[in-house]
């Protein structure tokens, strides 16, 4: 299995552990990644609020850069925001006849050209559909027995494009969590919104959305995520929210790739639980991996 890899800015910044653990887990599962050379920002949620064309041109530039390197047709993006931006560029170029030449005009001076053959895939899509829970289960050496894990999908890997899961009642993480030996914590917040950049621009609103999610997760041993922005929102403000609520709402938040890495028996340097802002070490205690801080 081969994919072109688009890490995105967060994965080389505040969510480096997502990048490290994704590469390690996929390597352990014999998946070959080729990083898109000289990739650039997808525009995040910022470009769409500044210019419509820019919000398509920034991700499209990376699809064109991917087409230039190999005949592989799948781009793998672990970040949900990157995934959605790249996906939208893919869809708009495919369905809007005028869009593809317009986009190509933007980056032709760089010698890049997009033909539209690329398919953009989220990490969760690749793990659940291409690799599959069975293959992961066969590789599990350190089962996470007795752990209750709450799957948190967020918005952008599910909506608006229906690709690999039910956009309102997602289930694709269930089989993966069960494959690790852990139990799926039943809750209704898996597809809820974390508020995205509200935590920065409308802090009170963002805080109330995150508070509701943390309260619903009470009773789980960890929340598992597939998006750096959701991840940051869910783990970075736990102290403040606990203070506000006069209640302890602290809970380990780990990336899906870290969870799988633990079960596959990967080393701490491969999954870097020590980099999480929440107490991921508490979650891994009792299993063979103990995060060192």
């Amino acid at each position: 299995m081969k994919y072109l890899y688009y890490p995105g800015c967060s994965l080389e910044g505040t969510s480096r552990e997502y990048d490290i653990s994704t590469r390690s887990v996929l390597k352990a599962l014999d998946v070959e990644l080729t990083e898109i050379p000289d990739w650039t920002c997808c525009g995040a949620s910022a470009a769409a609020s500044v210019s419509a064309l820019l919000s398509l041109a920034l991700p499209a530039r990376n699809i064109a850069a991917a087409e230039a390197v190999s005949d592989v047709n799948d781009i793998l993006a672990p970040c949900s925001a990157c995934y959605l931006n790249l996906k939208r560029a893919e869809e708009e170029a495919r369905h809007g006849a005028e869009m593809l030449p317009r986009l190509n005009a933007v980056f032709e001076s760089e010698g890049l050209k997009m033909t539209g053959r690329m398919r953009v895939r989220h990490l969760l899509d690749v793990l659940s559909q291409d690799i599959g829970a069975d293959r992961i289960r066969r590789n599990v050496s350190h089962p996470l027995s007795g752990k209750r894990v709450a799957p948190y999908y967020g918005c952008q890997c599910l909506r608006p494009y229906r690709v690999f899961d039910n956009p309102e009642k997602p289930v694709s993480m269930n089989a993966l969590i069960e494959a690790t030996g852990a139990q799926v914590f039943p809750w209704h917040m898996g597809a809820a919104c974390c508020g995205a950049s509200h935590m920065n621009t409308h802090a009170a609103v963002g805080t109330s959305l995150v508070t509701a999610i943390l309260k619903a997760a009470r009773g789980a041993d960890a929340i598992v995520t597939v998006c750096p922005m959701c991840h940051m929102n869910l783990e970075a403000y736990q102290d403040k929210i606990s203070q506000n609520c006069h209640d302890n709402l602290r809970i380990p938040v780990v990336y899906l790739s870290q969870l799988l890495g633990m079960a596959l028996g990967l080393s701490e340097t491969d999954i870097r639980l020590d980099m999480n802002l929440s107490e991921a070490a508490v979650f891994s205690a009792g299993s063979s991996i103990v995060a060192v801080r």
């Binding site: 769409a48 918005c155 952008q156 959305l209």
Partner: peptide
């Protein structure tokens, strides 16, 4: 916050 639930 662009959760797309309304669009859906």
């Amino acid at each position: 916050s662009a959760c797309y639930t309304c669009t859906l």
